[in-house]
Structures are given as structure tokens and as C-alpha cells.
């Protein structure tokens, strides 16, 4: 870990382009995007559908590779990596949280939290303790043996958050993580994100709701595959940290 300590930027995009072929037509989903996310920063990404924010998320999440340009995740250049190496990056350095929770139905809460560790070449010996502690922290201590279908939406999303933290990721990616929740539960989850951010986790939160985006230190607006605007509101985040 110490070698990565000095790398301040968790995410670095340099003139990233992603082109899709839709039949005869070429679609520029990302058209020369460059920015860097520093360690501990809380970014929200906004934009209409078709703005390229999903593609951006896929590229940052190592699910997709840029057609042109470079993307570095915690100092690792991803454009030259093969499928297995990208999978390694995902299981070691990334935590994913989805709008529809995306838990695996036949696994119980503890097993769901453990999934990212299953795919590590050398899983940590204390994985299960870590997962239990995370479940406890998410208020799911008594639900550890339950199946996802036996949980409420908010509880499922808490499992997903625990899952995204189990591998001590460099970056947590949340895609509309509160989109399926009622406003009270959504606020609880958003508070949880604030907490994580305060602990120094680097977070990228995709949302289309302005009040959700407000909580982040940086707000990135995408339009037509390009950055429309980037608002830095660091002081808000620092106030949050002070408050918690």
C-alpha cells in the first residue's frame, strides 16, 4: 500500500474518448474527457441520459476501456490491460453500488458482502470478520443469514454498501444509489456516504437529483460526451467533516 500512498490522484482521465459503432454510425459516447479525482474526494456526476455519464462510469469502473486516451486508476494504466487484469482491478480497487442493489438472490447477506473477496487471487484471511463488522456497522448484524428477498430496499442497499467496502477499495462508485428508495431511506443512505467520505473514502456518485449532487465536494456535469461544467465546493465537505 505504501507505494500507492504518494499517488494523490485515484482517478486520472487524459483526453479519454469512447466510440461505439451502432450499425453504420459511430457514436462518440465520450469525446475527449480529462479530469482527475484526488484521494478522499467526493464527486457527483450529473447529466441527462445520453450525456455519456454511464460510459464514463463504466470506464472509471474498469468495465469498459477507452478507445483513445489514457485512464489511470490509482496509478495503473488501464488501456493496456486484458480482461483478467481489469477483473483484478475491480475486485481489488473498486467498490460498486447500483441503483437496483444487485445482490445475488441465492446468497445470504454475509455471502453477498463477501463476493468481491471470492474473486481475489489472494483473499485476505480476515475477510469474514471484516464482512461481519461491516454488516454490523450497516445495522444488519441480525440479518446476516437472510436472503436479499427477505430484506427491505434500504437494507438491501446497505448490504450493497457493505459489499463495496469489504475489499477496502481505492474508489467507491455509486450509480443512482438512492434512485429506488423513498426519501427518508435515501437520506439515511446519503448520510452514510457522507460518513464514508468523512473517513477519507474516495467516492464517485452518479445521480440526476440536484440535492443529492449538492452533498459532494465536486459536481461534474456531462453533456454530449463532454464535460459541461465542474463545480468544486470543497468547503461544504469540510464543514460536513467538522460536523461529524
Amino acid at each position: 500500500m505504501s507505494s500507492q500512498e504518494h499517488i494523490q490522484n485515484v482517478v486520472e482521465l487524459m483526453n479519454v474518448r469512447r466510440t461505439y459503432r451502432m450499425g453504420e454510425e459511430l457514436v462518440q459516447a465520450l469525446d475527449g474527457v480529462s479530469f482527475a479525482i484526488g484521494r478522499g474526494e467526493y464527486w457527483s456526476v450529473m447529466g441527462a441520459s445520453g450525456s455519456g455519464k454511464s460510459t464514463l462510469l463504466n470506464v472509471i469502473g474498469c468495465l469498459d476501456r477507452p478507445t483513445e486516451g489514457d485512464y489511470l486508476l490509482a496509478g495503473t494504466k488501464t488501456s493496456s490491460l486484458d480482461d483478467d487484469e481489469l477483473s483484478d482491478l475491480r475486485s481489488q480497487k473498486l467498490g460498486f453500488i447500483f441503483q437496483s442493489y444487485n445482490l445475488i438472490p441465492q446468497l445470504d447477506v454475509l455471502e453477498n458482502i463477501l463476493v468481491p473477496l471470492y474473486y481475489q487471487d489472494e483473499p485476505p484471511a480476515d475477510g469474514e470478520e471484516r464482512a461481519r463488522a461491516l454488516a454490523e456497522r450497516m445495522g444488519l448484524g441480525d440479518r446476516i443469514g437472510h436472503r436479499p428477498t427477505e430484506l427491505s430496499g434500504g437494507q438491501q442497499q446497505r448490504v450493497a454498501i457493505a459489499r463495496s467496502l469489504v475489499n477496502n477499495p481505492e474508489l467507491i462508485m455509486a450509480d443512482e444509489a438512492t434512485g429506488n428508495l423513498d426519501s427518508q431511506t435515501a437520506n439515511e443512505i446519503l448520510d452514510l456516504f457522507d460518513e464514508l467520505s468523512a473517513e477519507g473514502k474516495t467516492i464517485v456518485f452518479v445521480t440526476h437529483e440536484a440535492h443529492v449532487a449538492e452533498r459532494a465536494s465536486h459536481i461534474l456535469r456531462m453533456k454530449d460526451g463532454q464535460i459541461e461544467e465542474l463545480i468544486v465546493q470543497r468547503e461544504i465537505v469540510q464543514r460536513e467533516i467538522v460536523r461529524s
Binding site: S87, D88, R90, S91, L103, I104, P116, Y119
Partner: peptide, 9 residues
């Protein structure tokens, strides 16, 4: 989901 969470082929 499994692929996103790091499963290889």
C-alpha cells in the same frame, strides 16, 4: 454483477 465485482471469465 459478478463480473463487475471482479469475477474473471
Amino acid at each position: 454483477i459478478r463480473r463487475a465485482l471482479g469475477a474473471k471469465k
